[in-house]
Amino acid sequence: MQIFDLEDRGLRALNQTLHDQANDTNQTSWEIINPRGSHAIAVGLDAPIEVKIKGSTGYYCGGMNKQADILVEGSVGPGVAENMMSGTVVIEGDASQYAGATGRGGLLVIKGNASSRCGISMKGINIVVHGNIGHMSAFMAQSGNLVVLGDAGDALGDSLYEAQLFVRGTVKSLGADCVKKEMRAEHIALLQNLLDMAGADASPKEFTRYGSARQLYHFDIDNTGAY
């Protein structure tokens, strides 16, 4: 295992070192010590490596991740795994605003709570939050799945496209065009798989599915009075 002291060597050296790992690197396991809330840790990775961050991070940890498996042994600031393409990002603590925003693939697991705008504009990523999520989560979410074992805040799924939302607890309020939907067999299977991948001990049957009512997709002449 390679140990990288961020305080000693700095952020540019860290990300360059991680970027330099090719698909066939022998150095597949990395541990980053002294993150101390720094921004942009392990951003833009594109290799099948494991990166463990020993502490809490600031903005944009694991952003644009491809292939890598990133574990944060702490909490993360705003924009964790923003625009992730593939791989996994696992947070042992809490996540701040817009976790997994615009993510296109891969799996983001937050073992604590996520705050506002979790999964905003998600485009294919799977997000599993063991705790609660804040307001305006999954705003304009286009595809992928957001799974919440706890409760959701105000305006869940506002202006939602085709992302699927599964919430076990309560939803404070639904956003425009987001509605409760039935859980069919395929949703139970999909959710079971996501829960298994995220190491979450919960039964899919306890969840409610939410999705788009598809009323805001196109301009509707009857709505002109609202503008």
């Binding site: 101390r36 903005y59 909490s75």
Partner: peptide
Amino acid sequence: TDQYVAFGSEYRALV
């Protein structure tokens, strides 16, 4: 903590 309440715009300020 038992010793203080602290606020920061970012966690970095508290480390």
